[in-house]
Write a protein that binds this DNA or RNA. Sequence first.
DNA 1: ACCTGAACACCGTTCAAGT
DNA 2: ACCTGAACACCGTTCAAGT
Lengths: 193, 193
Amino acid sequence: MAVSARRGLPLTSEEIYAAALRLIDTAGVDALSMRKLAADLDVNPMSLYHHVESKTGLLRGVCRLVDSRLQLPPDDGSPWQDQLRALAHAYRSIAQSHPSLWLHVNSHPGVIDQKGELWTVYNRILVAAGVPFDELAHTRKALVAFVIGLISSETIGFLQALGEEEGETDADATFEVAVDLIIASLEARHSRT
Amino acid sequence: MAVSARRGLPLTSEEIYAAALRLIDTAGVDALSMRKLAADLDVNPMSLYHHVESKTGLLRGVCRLVDSRLQLPPDDGSPWQDQLRALAHAYRSIAQSHPSLWLHVNSHPGVIDQKGELWTVYNRILVAAGVPFDELAHTRKALVAFVIGLISSETIGFLQALGEEEGETDADATFEVAVDLIIASLEARHSRT
DNA sequence: ACCTGAACACCGTTCAAGT
DNA sequence: ACCTGAACACCGTTCAAGT
């Protein structure tokens, strides 16, 4: 009762992040404002600042939330091709769930603090693919760039298509072909055959 | 004299686009505002609206300006590998000149109206590379995604490194390796050898 | 500890009025 | 035709005050 005039429970940052993510998915990152978010939570705009440092901090929190949902392929003994495919699809599924946030993150350096664990997984897969140690960094960078480019292009196309008539996007097929292409090129360069 | 209290000459949209581009390159797209742009041009904020429809229209104009500077490889008889490399580098050089604008465009569908001519050039190169007609669309999409992903990753890294100590970026080498990888993979799939 | 209202320094844009 | 000031509906954020 002593908590708020408009709500029964105190705010939590988790609650704030979740609401922000919902608004972002609905109307896009650019349409998110502290004041709209507060209205959505039925709360005074200034209350947010007790749980979130700033709008930038809010966005970082939302990204962490989404990041934590990324399903990294486990280190079982399965072929590196399968693991790479799984990773690409996990990434893609996150982008499809939150297209606007995805594009925002991938064009705003610094919103994501560090992808340490992700790098580790990529490296593990590349080692399994036979990439020599001194080419690991180059190859990982290129690989990550390819995957991100693929997904970004698809996401842009998806958002663009919302306002047009365009028939089937055929995106699944394009994505599969592209991932196969990446895998094939890794096989060609480093396999012992 | 009857033109403006603060300037001798009437505004032109070209002048506006050029000034906006300068501000964007200096402080980033997010920091651009109609009011700052007007101040930079020594002009009343509202005067801009006689030459530019809106802030979105302004951004589109700036993109057209930058787009017109893209050096598309000519249709001489040179090997498709060289042409692809040239195209990738032309693209890259634009991103390096205007990193913030580049990232903005590649995450905001609709700022660029159509890249008709660019598509044509890509298709020409892919045909020369032996890509069969019915795989043209898929392959072009993947190729464009790869190149854009490569350049975007590099650009993000570049902007990120501005605030850190990080030594040499080694970006040139990574880029070269990645473009070689793309070319090799096209050669492997479609050459007649 | 958590919330809140008023206030400040910004935005993009409309509109009626000026030359 | 081109410019302009005032005004409107928004922003993010600070701060002093409330419980």
